[in-house]
Design a protein around this nucleic acid. Structure first.
Lengths: 250, 250
DNA sequence: AATGAACGTTGCATATTGTGCAACGCCCTC
DNA sequence: GAGGGCGTTGCACAATATGCAACGTTCATT
C-alpha cells in the first residue's frame, strides 16, 4: 500500500482531535517538517484541511460536504436488494422494503414469494399506515409530539377485526415497536396475511427504511412466521451496517 | 505537492457521486488499474472507503465520523445551535448558519422549517456567493481591497431576474449590507424563496458567521418575512455575545 | 533596538517509493 | 468449454517523495 497516502491520511484523525501546527503534525507522523508540509498542502488543496487564522491546521469543511453528498446519493434500495434476495432465498416468502415519504409509507422494493400463493402488493404503492408492520416501524421513530399529532389525524379503517381501532391503540403499538425494535402485522390488513418486520437505520441511528416478510396463513401459521424474526432482524441489521458505511462482515 | 496523495484524494469526490468499480475509478483518474487499486486499498485501510457487497467502492464510515468531528469542533455552531432552535420555534421557518472558509461560504447548521413546503439545502453545501444573504454578510466584512479583488474574480450567474448581475452591483450591495448590519436575498437564487440574515461577530467585532431565515413565497410574502428582521438580528446578537465570551442572558 | 529562538518555507541530491506492464486467476455468459 | 470482463500480483524501472541544511519571518526577551 502507498506509504505517502498512508501518511497523509493519518493526519486526518490527528487533526480531528484538535488543531495542530506543522511541527506537531510532523512529530506525530514521525517525518520531517518539510514532508509534513507537502502532505498538508495537498490535503489543503482538496479542502480536507484548512488553515485557521493562527496558522494552525484543522479539518476542513469539504469533509462534511463530501459526507453529506455521499449520504444524499445513497440508495437504500440498491444496498438492500441483495440482502432481500438472500432472505427470500432462505425463507421463500415475499420480502418488502419500504420508506416514509410525504406523509406516506411506500414499498420501494419487493422480492416475490416462491410459493404459489402470493400476497398482492406492488412497488410504489402506499401501504396502510395504521396496520402494516413497515409503517409501524417507520412511524415509531418519529419524535413523540409528531407521533401524537399524526395519530390524531389518521383514519383507522377496520380492514379486519384485528385492525388497529383508534389513535390510542396505535400510539401504544408504536411505543411497543420502538421499544422492542421489531413489528408485526397479524391479519390486521387482510385476515389471512401475517408480516414480521425490522427497521433499517442510518449512521445516526435514525430509521431510514423498514423491511418485512409476509406470508398467508395457508402457507405458514403466524407462529411459524414469527420464528423467522431473528433472521429478519439480522438481515435488517446487516443492511443498516452497510448503509451507514461499515464493511459488510464476512 | 504530492502526486500520489493528490490522486488518492481525487477519488473521494468521485465516490461521493455514487459507488464505482475499480475500472471506473482508474479511468476517471487517468491511471492504470493497478495504481487505482493500491490507492483504494490505502483509503480502505483508513476506513475512508469501503467495498459494498457487489464489490464496488463507496465512501466509508470513518469519513462520516471525521466529518462529524470536524463540525463539532466548529464552536460557533455549538453555541449558535440552541439559539437557532429557539428562533425556529418562534417563526417556524428554515434557519441556516454559515461560515466563510477557503473561498467558499458553507452552511454548517440548519434547522428545518416546520411548514410542509421547504426549501432545499444541505449542511456542508457551498452557497451561491453572489446572491445568498449569508454570503453577503460574510463577504461584506472583508477589507475593501479584498472585496474588490474577490468581486472581480467571481462569476455572476443569472439564477433569476433578480440575481446580482455584475461586480459593480455586488460591491454596492456589500457596502450597503456592511452599513446596515443585515442582508436579504429576495428571490435572487430561486424565484420563490426569500431570506433575511444577520451577522454573528466575535469579540473583536469581525464577522465570524452569518445566519438567515428562509421561506418560500407560498408560505409568507417578502414583507412578512422582513418583519422578522428584528427577531433575527436579536438572535444573531445573542449568539455574538455568547460567542465572544459574555454569559448568555437568561 | 538588538538578539535569538521558533516556526514555516525552499532547492537540491539521493534512493525510496509508486508506477505501468504483462501475466494470472476467477466468475459469469454465450 | 471457450471467451470476455474484472480484480489481483510480481517485477524492473524511473519518477517521485524524502530528509537535509539553509533562508526568511515573526515574535518574545533583554
Amino acid at each position: 500500500m502507498s506509504q505517502t497516502v498512508d501518511r497523509a491520511l493519518s493526519i486526518l484523525p490527528l487533526l480531528a482531535e484538535g488543531p495542530a501546527d506543522l511541527g506537531q503534525v510532523a512529530d506525530r507522523l514521525g517525518v520531517h517538517k518539510s514532508t509534513a508540509l507537502r502532505l498538508l498542502r495537498t490535503l489543503h488543496e482538496h479542502g480536507l484541511v484548512f488553515r485557521q487564522s493562527d496558522q494552525r491546521y484543522r479539518l476542513g469543511a469539504r469533509l462534511f460536504a463530501l459526507a453529506q453528498e455521499a449520504v444524499e446519493n445513497l440508495d437504500v434500495r440498491e444496498i438492500a436488494h441483495p440482502h432481500l434476495l438472500a432472505l427470500n432465498e432462505k425463507c421463500g416468502h415475499t420480502v418488502h422494503l419500504a420508506v416514509y415519504e410525504e406523509q406516506e409509507v411506500l414499498y420501494i422494493d419487493k422480492v416475490e414469494s416462491r410459493y404459489p400463493v402470493r400476497m398482492y402488493s406492488r412497488i410504489g404503492k402506499p401501504v396502510a399506515l395504521t396496520v402494516a408492520a413497515v409503517a409501524k416501524l417507520l412511524l415509531s421513530d418519529f419524535p413523540e409530539a409528531e407521533r401524537r399529532a399524526l395519530a390524531e389525524k389518521l383514519d383507522y379503517p377496520a380492514y379486519t377485526s384485528r385492525s388497529t381501532p383508534n389513535a390510542a391503540a396505535f400510539l401504544k403499538e408504536l411505543a411497543q415497536v420502538r421499544e422492542q425494535g421489531w413489528a408485526t402485522d397479524l391479519g390486521g390488513h387482510e385476515e389471512s396475511i401475517n408480516c414480521v418486520g425490522a427497521p433499517i437505520r442510518g449512521a445516526d441511528g435514525r430509521v431510514v427504511a423498514a423491511m418485512s416478510v409476509s406470508a398467508p396463513n395457508v402457507v405458514v401459521t403466524a407462529e411459524e412466521l414469527l420464528r423467522l424474526l431473528p433472521l429478519v432482524r439480522r438481515t435488517a441489521e446487516a443492511i443498516s451496517r452497510e448503509y451507514s458505511g461499515h464493511a459488510p462482515e464476512k
